[in-house]
Design a protein around this nucleic acid. Sequence first.
DNA 1: CTCTGGATTGAC
DNA 2: TCAATCCAGAGG
Length: 187
Amino acid sequence: MILKRDFYNRGTIEIARDLLGKILVHKTPEGVISGRIVETEAYLQDDLACHASRGMTPRNRAMFGLPGQAYVYFIYGMYHCVNVVTQPEGIGEAVLIRAVEPVEGVELMQKKRGREDHLADGPGKLCQAFGIDKRLNAVDMTRGKFVILDGEKPEKIYSSGRIGIKNNAEKPWRFFVDSEHVSRKPR
DNA sequence: CTCTGGATTGAC
DNA sequence: TCAATCCAGAGG
């Protein structure tokens, strides 16, 4: 069952936790790619690490849109990162999907990644494996080719500081499960 | 227009 | 530890 708008129209930290175990799906022309979400990070509007903390700009506009739509951005000149927008329209918050455990379309992911392992254990790798780029920015993830399905709730959820940021680095807003497919050791 | 740095990755 | 690679955002 596809997660509906109401799922995303709630507190961002709560959603970041609840997304663990859910299934990210991208139906591409080449085939279906899916994976179990094992790592997320919450980004709040009143949070200097959040792109939306300094107001709306052309890049972060999607973050202020409807809950359940995608926010995809390009980073470090070569990678994309994908978020799901949370909170009602007008509030710039989202959950970064940092890692998934591959489920469907493994061969296709291997082709896109150019290697057999470490297919989606990091935000840049995940987008490369799933064929996610700016064309998916602002698309509605409650219907269509790019969605998140309900999934089994993980037994245990861990948290830590978020990766690769300076501001609010100590805030425990990174969430992950016990999996070989998270982006970093602390499990 | 110029400049700076980034929610990363993989090689060294 | 660091280069790759380029664009968003800020400042002139």
